[in-house]
Design a protein around this nucleic acid. Structure first.
Lengths: 312, 312
DNA sequence: TTGTAAGCGTTATCAG
DNA sequence: CTGATAACGCTTACAA
């Protein structure tokens, strides 16, 4: 392996001067610069990134914790993160967590060991408060409203669009509304925000039997519809946690030659567009981009991102 | 920041002894080990990963080049890579390429600068031959059959399952078969393998007008169906590059109240299962896992993965 | 079993 | 403008 010292020795200049031309710094005359550059080219030398990182005390890597890669929420947010990271010259480490708190803690420890400069939790199971002590080792960013906890965050502002959506449903006189949610209301910010908005608009909490949680995919949607039907529940409207999920719900009714209820999705996916159903665009790519800017220290604080209700 | 030297100084032992307890090595007495461990705990010390990597000459990072994150081919292969990486204690760097050769070269340069130990191309535009010189800097792995080029590879063996699929189609006397492919035959291994298998089974090359390329998603499928219809082409069968794509095709015909042709998909996705159409399972997760093992040097050479035709 | 000291390959400070 | 040299924080021969 050829090192900066080889370049110095062969070019006849010092290591520091070589370092300067490497980093395009001033205080090196054009002639010397050319000479050294020639040796660099001749030797086909490139600096070692790890040595550089150690010396500089930073890695230009950002860790991104993802429970699973398949859900559109994550793919969108990841695309936002990756695009912003690429633009800023950062690399993204994908850190799978499967929602396991121990694994999540492991990644915070990697941050402490300086394996990356910042850490983004696209979602997590461990308490946010437990993350705070790690801020001294690097930027820690979550992707939901952290409330009063002092941690950087980028997230969609769900309240306004959820309320707009429920008002839209209410105006059309649907009164048996099924809610199909991702995870339990106790652990999912999405789910609880949905319930809160529903309650505020309709003046009453949703009928518990019409609320399904743990629904994250097309197939889960299909199964949720099966549940409604098997339980003889006949919602006249289903508010789903994604357009693809709504498509799964519809597919169940179609497959069984049943009259499907009216539907609303989220994420503004192609499926919703094709089905012609209303949706909510949470702009998760923007959330991802904002999260990355927080993680690299280009911004700080809370970044609520506006979301849009799209009636159809 | 507290370093290994602090631990040495405070515990009264040498840096090397501390290093030994850190790395759970032999040749350190139990008493000393306990003393040092106590100081480590008291100081809340953790080793710096970057310094470690520099000293050891490896990063335990693997770079994974992905043109885009959304296509199911990539999500499946990425899941396989990530699962295997997690199991092996490696971190995965996601490297977006958008099929741009310059960007791809940039990642090979990062490999040369030792930013990661190995590099996996899930797909690429640059010639494989150009990657060979970089093997001396770390493992380089591609995810398709590299032919005679000497480079590590993990890929699905498409031939047998493609031929089985086309024989199935032939037995049912379809004679106007549309092919919906990802990228041009010149650059896509998938596309050319499809054409080759078709030709071998039917004894004649596919009708050019019935071949659509550049189709990677549900919406592309929708558009492809629109093309067939607008051109007054009426394939009696469409072989699609994915179940979701087949779903998009079907949706077009449904939306326009047209008689849809028979369909076959790929990837064994949920959509295909629900539509009840035949599919081909390429086991991309296994491909990803194999690719990772190659990238970390746990295996070497070529890893063809068996694929299955699933008639329905 | 423990310690000394030489790397690992850069960057950055401080003289000249 | 250029050069010594001390970090950066750890691992690992080689000694003791």
């Amino acid at each position: 392996m050829t090192t900066i010292r080889d370049v110095a020795r062969i070019s006849g200049y010092s290591v520091s001067t070589v370092s300067r031309v490497l980093n395009h710094k001033n205080y090196v005359s054009d002639g010397v610069r050319r000479n050294i550059q020639k040796v660099i080219n001749d030797l086909d030398y490139v600096p070692n990134d790890v040595a550089r990182d150690l010396s500089r005390g930073r890695t230009k890597n950002i860790g991104v914790v993802v429970p699973n890669v398949e859900h559109p929420y994550y793919t969108d947010i990841i695309r936002g993160i990756m695009a912003a990271a690429f633009a800023a010259g950062y690399n993204v480490l994908m850190l799978p967590s499967r929602y396991e708190p121990q694994v999540e803690h492991g990644y915070l420890d990697q941050l402490r060991r300086r394996a990356f400069d910042g850490l983004i939790f696209t979602s997590h199971t461990m308490p946010v408060a437990d993350m705070v002590p790690y801020k001294k080792y690097g930027e820690v960013v979550v992707c939901h409203d952290p409330g009063s906890i002092d941690i950087s965050a980028a997230y969609t502002e769900r309240g306004p669009s959820y309320r707009a959506a429920f008002r839209w449903i209410q105006r059309r006189h649907y009164h048996n509304v099924g809610l199909v949610l991702p995870r339990g209301v106790d652990i999912s910010a999405t789910s609880s925000a949905t319930i809160v908005a529903y309650t505020r608009v309709f003046g009453t909490a949703p009928e518990p039997r019409l609320v399904r949680t743990g629904v994250m995919s097309y197939s889960d949607g299909y199964a949720a519809a099966e549940y409604y039907h098997s339980q003889n529940l006949a919602p006249d409207f289903i508010f789903a946690n994604g357009d693809d999920i709504a498509a799964g719900i519809l597919q169940y009714y179609r497959d069984n030659h049943l009259q499907a209820p009216a539907l609303m999705g989220q994420e503004n996916q192609l499926s919703g567009q094709l089905l012609g159903i209303p949706t909510i665009d949470h702009h998760f790519r923007d959330v991802g981009a904002a999260a990355l800017r927080l993680a690299i220290g280009a911004a700080s604080g809370q970044f609520p991102v506006h979301s849009d209700f799209i009636p159809r």
